[in-house]
Simulated assay, not measured.
Amino acid sequence: MTDQERSQRFQDTMLPHLHAAYNLARWLTRSDGDAQDVVQEAYLRAFRYFDAFHGHDGRSWLLAIVRNTYYSGAKQHEHELREVQFDEDHLSADEIAEIHAHFGGDNDPAAILQRGDESRRVHRALERVPTAFREVLILRELEDLSYREIADIAGIPVGTVMSRLARGRKLLAAYLLEREACHGL
């Protein structure tokens, strides 16, 4: 394969996933500039090792590189990487039902504006979720990856993915309820 053919194959396979790569990097780093740096480094690594890629869909492979790039440069964020404890009994079924009821809505303009405000609140709450849980939430809920794909990307068992996803959802809900209680919303 010529260099031009390799370059074209890389572009065809990896560039469609630029948004997903940036999205994951942005949520991991919590910074636009740092996310851009992580994505740039990840794409350089992906290009360098592209001959080792033998799949058809490069998204999972690329997202694993983005994740590894973030963690390899995250020594300054080591406090986030420690194991996180979470009390799973923190939210009652009623509190979870309240969250679901609150985030329903219709299509009138006032409801649409309110959903925009709610979206910003969800993003702020999601930024508070520890990285280990946030990454599986992002990969599952925003990138719509399967548990198996997430497990492969994160290098963890599927059971751990499911556990982190459940805990991450509970943490997110707790942060949303906390913020709502503090602001009387």
Rank of each mutant, 00 (worst) to 15 (best):
E83K: 09
Y49C: 02
P16E: 01
Y43P: 07
D51H: 11
Y43E: 14
R48Q: 04
L18K: 07
E83G: 07
L15N: 09
A20G: 08
D32W: 04
E80M: 01
Y70Q: 03
E80H: 00
L62D: 10
D32A: 12
F47N: 09
H54Y: 14
A21Q: 08
E83D: 14
Y71S: 03
A64R: 00
Y70H: 07
A21P: 03
L24F: 10
R30N: 04
D37C: 11
E83Y: 10
G55A: 04
G55R: 04
D51Y: 10
Y49R: 15
L28N: 00
P16A: 01
L18Y: 06
D32S: 12
H17M: 02
R67G: 05
H77S: 03
D32Q: 11
F47K: 15
H79T: 07
L81N: 01
L62I: 11
N68A: 07
L44D: 13
H19A: 14
L63E: 06
L24Y: 09
G58L: 06
F50K: 08
N68I: 12
L15G: 05
Q36V: 08
H19Y: 06
H79W: 10
A20W: 06
E41Y: 15
S60K: 02
F47P: 03
S31T: 01
W61R: 00
V38P: 08
G58F: 04
H79A: 13
G55N: 02
I65G: 01
Y71L: 09
R26M: 14
N23A: 15
H56L: 15
S31Y: 08
S60Q: 01
R26V: 08
Y22P: 09
H17K: 03
R30T: 00
H17Q: 05
A25L: 06
H17N: 05
E78N: 11
Y43C: 09
V38E: 14
A46V: 10
